[in-house]
């Protein structure tokens, strides 16, 4: 009977080594919740700015904002991104430290690189859209490329991220059809879905 517990320990050792060497498991679920909250706050601010602009056609895919307003929107977007990434790094570092794991190891690098490839592609594409004044397709594009990034990165961290990726892509495609409601889809995808998923991850792996 003593042998049996030894074999069970062997198997759990095998599983833990496989996981720890190939997946980044320190990713914090709470950072997803925070990212979602920042996104919702940002979307709310953006909504106020757009509403203040008199005489714009909200349904149009060529949103004619005065240049000052557009800059404000870009600054909000960058602030949301910066806050989300910053909080994510802090919480993930804390989680890794608590478990005595190294933070910037090979799996972390693989995760980052694979996340960034579609993300940067999408980012550049959105800048090009912005340059051409195609504001309406930016929200759907960010959702779709973010979804692709998550799916690409899911091989190197919790597989659950993959389903969040599918959800973001679906939302992005629907949003591309209903041009003009981008901000709402954006708030749903980056805000609500992040909070939901972050909470699920937190209760599943960190409690």
């Amino acid at each position: 009977m003593e042998n049996k517990t030894q074999y069970l320990e062997d198997i759990s050792q095998i599983r833990s080594m496989m996981e720890r060497s190939s997946r980044f498991i320190s990713l914090s679920g709470l950072s997803g919740v925070f990212a979602g909250v920042y996104a919702l706050a940002g979307a709310f601010l953006a909504h106020q700015i757009i509403n203040n602009e008199i005489g714009i056609n909200y349904q149009s895919k060529f949103l004619n904002l005065s240049s000052g307003r557009l800059e404000q929107l870009v600054i909000i977007a960058l602030a949301v991104l910066g806050l989300a990434i910053g909080t994510g790094i802090i919480l993930t570092t804390q989680k890794a430290r608590k478990r005595g794991l190294k933070i910037w190891d090979k799996t972390a690098k693989l995760l980052t690189i694979n996340l960034l490839i579609p993300l940067i592609t999408g980012g550049i594409l959105c800048l090009i859209f912005l340059h051409h004044g195609l504001v309406g397709v930016i929200a759907p594009s960010t959702l779709i490329f973010y979804g692709l990034s998550l799916i690409n990165a899911s091989k190197y961290t919790f597989t659950d991220i993959r389903y969040l990726g599918f959800a973001e892509i679906a939302l992005g495609l629907i949003s591309a059809y209903y041009v003009g409601f981008g901000l709402y889809f954006w708030a749903l995808g980056f805000g609500i879905l992040h909070i939901l998923y972050g909470a699920i991850m937190y209760f599943k792996y960190e409690r």
Binding site: D10, Q13, I14, R15, M17, M18, S21, S22
Partner: peptide, 9 residues
């Protein structure tokens, strides 16, 4: 056992 587990993945 650990070495093998790591190397196979």
């Amino acid at each position: 056992l650990g070495i093998m587990s790591i190397l196979v993945v």
